[in-house]
Design a protein around this nucleic acid. Structure first.
Lengths: 341, 341
DNA sequence: GTTGACGTGACATACGTATGTCAAATAAGG
DNA sequence: CCTTATTTGACATACGTATGTCACGTCAAC
């Protein structure tokens, strides 16, 4: 039988009320009695039954996800995963809202964050680029007692309670290792593309890539990063030029979004080149590209895991419970056609 | 506010007792009233608060894991994962035991299974090869009302409630695809090894391998499977002979356990051959081999996920709750040195 | 009209925890 | 030692559900 507060009271020789005062950090307890209670807790190995406590408190958790708006396949999969996780028993007693912000406009992001009703908010999962204003807004949210986790992109200067996502430096290294092994014994160059190198994710991935290539695969050269800036024409033009001017091109590594347009461009200008293509994130586009053999591998952070992990972490924080690190570790997955899910 | 049984009673115009009788499938309810209650449940969207119910019932779950004994690095990681998951909040209100059986002795396995105290057992996770006797033992356990999940190896003829593990055919395909891509444009053969082809896992993996190689990589030939049977000398001898007689050998694919001895053998007889080496399962041995560059990639089913999933599924079964499929899907992961965790 | 059997409702108690009220015990200050 | 402030304990109620008891209907069969 697991010990209850009653057992603690008996063991410590105090009343239930006192035990409650100690356990919930209320005032008016003599140090000596507090010690006795804490001792009893340790001796009996008492752990609070969170479910019973929540029942008594009529506790409900209010969580908000703040995600980028605009057309982005990856974000769409995240949204879907959040919705799915919110519906499942993962979120017993939790209400989950999803808000969208225009991440290109830091002012709008902050406005959104500052407009949250802090009086009944328990936690926020944020997926936006870090700016000084965002950092301040997070401090504001935290000062109101809500917990904040960074989602997908870390916010290292914002004193978040947790980061839910992958290490993008390792992800870049993984991409490099895959490219190196797929191009075993070959010599040539790799086209590296992303939407924008402003995002820290792309920067970190690029670092990882370069590190692995220079250390383990000196015969492969990564070309300077091409930035698309969400412009299909630009994608097409740049890609075409690169392919034409680099006859030694052996592979393409797409570090960010814009895969649909990039694949489209590749179909036009590199049909006959037998390039190895590696990208990030499992979306309808990349999934189809894998199936069709237009991509060789993609590097994935499981969005279902992301969503569930963010919710679990927020709950654990609210309950002042331990985080089960092994479960919350988001893994860098490598997906090919054969292990597609 | 979420509706409670009280709301249902009011809405249906019956008493609490009647609602309880309907909800818990007890007798003595007129069909008309039962209908009214069910209608009310639907109209108000009532869902039972499992936590409150468990509290009232003083419900505790008793689960048992039945795992292979003997020295096996992979099983050791599974055991550790089960222990870790049992300690964490994953298993609120659950007692988890781990039993070991000698899987080589079907009789002993069955004896173990039949000796379980069925009167207070809610579920079993089983990782043993399927035999007719095992099938009968499982039927016996199920007839006592406990739930059974197959772990790692499916038991397709045993009418288990769930299978927690990867599709080994796809895993074999994944191995094939990796080998094919790592040996792009090369021609040669692949040494395939396992401890024993008796286990269905190895058979399925081999099928998957062959399928992918013949379809996508016709320049690569997989040699007949070598079986080690836990004999280090045999490993060394067989491997040495194969390496010597196959100058065109380009890769080694280890489908099962025995990686330590195999690596040892490779170190002696294939130091200079620059072979691509792929194996299964993340253990201390394969981890170190990745780090040292002795293996190129390993195919992994995350054991933490396995353990937690088995426990969640068993609980869901006990509570007659829905299983959140997306969460319980064990993924085939590809791990290289760069995305090692 | 009586006897059952069956269906039903009112009520009570319990699970482990939280929280409130209020009187009593204790300690500190003079 | 008395007064006052602080600390404590006894008790009650609640959360949503499960489960038990018991009496009151209703209806059919005798």
């Amino acid at each position: 039988m697991k010990p209850t507060v009653h057992d603690i009271a008996r063991e410590a020789g105090v009343s239930l009320s006192t035990v409650d005062r100690v356990l919930n950090g209320r005032a008016d307890v003599r140090p000596k009695n507090a010690e006795r209670v804490k001792d009893a807790v340790k001796r009996l190995g008492y752990v609070r039954d969170t479910n019973a406590a929540n029942l008594a408190k009529k506790r409900r958790y209010k969580f908000v996800f703040v995600l980028p708006d605009g057309p982005n396949h990856f974000v769409e999969t995240v949204v879907e995963a959040v919705r799915e996780a919110s519906g499942a028993q993962v979120t017993d007693r939790a209400d989950v809202d999803v808000l969208f912000v225009n991440t290109a406009d830091p002012h709008a992001v902050v406005k959104r964050l500052m407009s949250l009703d802090l009086s009944q908010l328990d936690g926020v999962a944020i997926m936006v680029p870090e700016t000084p204003q965002v950092r301040d807004a997070i401090a504001h949210i935290k000062s109101a007692g809500a917990y904040v986790v960074a989602l997908v992109s870390d916010l290292p200067n914002s004193r978040c309670d947790h980061f839910v996502g992958i290490d993008n430096f390792s992800a870049g290294q993984t991409a490099g290792a895959l490219l190196g092994r797929f191009l075993r014994k070959e010599r040539g160059s790799i086209l590296v593309a992303t939407n924008s190198m402003v995002s820290r994710d792309s920067i970190e991935r690029r670092y990882g890539l370069d590190k692995v290539l220079s250390r383990d695969f000196p015969d492969l050269t990564a070309l300077p990063t091409i930035e698309f800036h969400d412009d299909p024409d630009r994608i097409r033009d740049t890609l075409e030029r690169s392919v034409a001017t680099h006859p030694e091109l052996k592979a393409v590594y797409s570090m960010g979004s814009g895969n649909a347009a990039m694949l489209d461009a590749l179909r036009h200008c590199a049909r006959d080149r037998d390039l190895v293509v590696i990208a990030h994130d499992l979306t309808s586009v990349t999934r189809q590209a894998l199936i069709d053999g237009e991509m060789d591998a993609i590097i994935v952070q499981n969005v279902g895991h992301l969503a569930r992990s963010a919710l679990r972490v927020l709950r654990a924080k609210c309950d002042a419970a331990e985080i089960f690190e092994a479960q919350e570790q988001i893994r860098i997955e490598i997906i090919m056609r054969e292990n597609l899910y």
